[in-house]
Computed example of a mutant assay.
Amino acid sequence: IRRVCDEFGLMLVMDASLLADNLHFIKEREEACKDLSIREITRRMADLCDVIYFSARKLGCARGGGMCIRSEELYRRMRGLVPLYEGFLTYGGMSVREMEALTVGLEETMDEEVINQGPQFIGFMVDELVKRGIPVITPAGGLGCHINAMQFVDHIPQAQYPAGALASALYIAGGIRGMERGTLSEQREPDGSELFANMELVRLAMPRRVFTLSQVKYAVDRLEWLYANRRLIGGLVFTEEPEILRFFYGRLAPVSDWQNELVAQFRKDFGDSL
């Protein structure tokens, strides 16, 4: 990629938000990198890039983020944007405490025993769901476990947002907050027609240093119950749909009384165990 960028005079910009997981997979899966340390792999990647930026909530386990720029000329071109979105260069959006926390987090990202925890937990969850016949994306990745809503609730038409409905049902049945990654996350076409996504997924991301194995097992147990009762889940329709960013600001309602029916079945099976 670096050679192609050089050939055509392009910058190589890397979004390093998910760097930690990828460092783990590179060392595990790439033959040429098996004998390199995590720090050495990071150095080689960074040396190829003109700009590296990242969300520190994912890389570094802190609030805020960072941008590393190799060129002073590029820095000068970009600095005028900072006051528009953050504040002046010397009083931007991060406190000294957060910068200190980020420094520690980036250093710990170089520790293989730190960065392998998330992928191992996710791999365990995916394997457990596969054993139970629950449709999930394989092989396991690094950001989270992705439930295949198109198969899980195949009775819900895409026009009624199956991934969004499944995410709602999972919250009802277990207090588990997932993220819809499907048609609901798309924008409508200019003529108002719906653009159906190629996949309907519910992403169950795992915050680093927060989840324990018992919480993962709990989520697997609730998903197993929900899969057994999946026919109770119905679709969703917009009651308030803004023209832009409907995924963030829109409001939806169930197409029927299915949410109450799901709660009734839950209480029948578990009482008030939540």
Rank of each mutant, 00 (worst) to 15 (best):
R2V: 15
D6Q: 14
L18E: 11
L23K: 03
I26R: 10
E30M: 14
S37E: 11
E40Y: 04
R43N: 13
S55L: 12
S55R: 11
A56G: 09
R57T: 15
G65P: 03
G66P: 06
G66E: 13
M67R: 08
I69G: 01
S71A: 05
L74K: 13
G80M: 05
G80C: 07
L81G: 14
E86S: 14
F88M: 14
T90K: 12
Y91P: 03
G93D: 13
V96H: 13
R97D: 12
L102T: 01
T103M: 12
G105Q: 03
L106F: 07
E107H: 15
E107N: 13
E113M: 12
E113N: 15
N116Y: 05
Q117G: 01
G118W: 01
P119M: 06
P119R: 04
Q120C: 01
G123K: 04
F124I: 09
V126G: 02
D127Q: 10
D127M: 01
D127W: 00
E128R: 12
L129R: 01
L129K: 02
L129W: 04
V130T: 11
K131H: 04
K131E: 09
K131W: 06
V136S: 00
V136K: 00
A140D: 02
G144W: 00
F152Q: 04
I156Q: 00
Q158E: 06
A159C: 08
A159I: 03
A159T: 06
Q160K: 03
A167I: 02
S168Y: 03
Y171S: 11
I176K: 04
G178V: 02
T183F: 00
S185R: 09
Q187K: 15
Q187R: 15
E189Y: 13
S193C: 02
E194R: 06
V220W: 09
V220G: 06
R222D: 02
W225K: 06
L226G: 03
Y227D: 05
R230A: 05
R231L: 08
G235L: 00
F238R: 03
T239P: 02
E241I: 00
P242L: 09
E243K: 15
R246W: 07
R246M: 14
L252R: 09
P254A: 05
V255T: 14
V255G: 00
N260M: 14
A264Q: 11
A264W: 08
G271V: 15
L274W: 13
L274I: 15
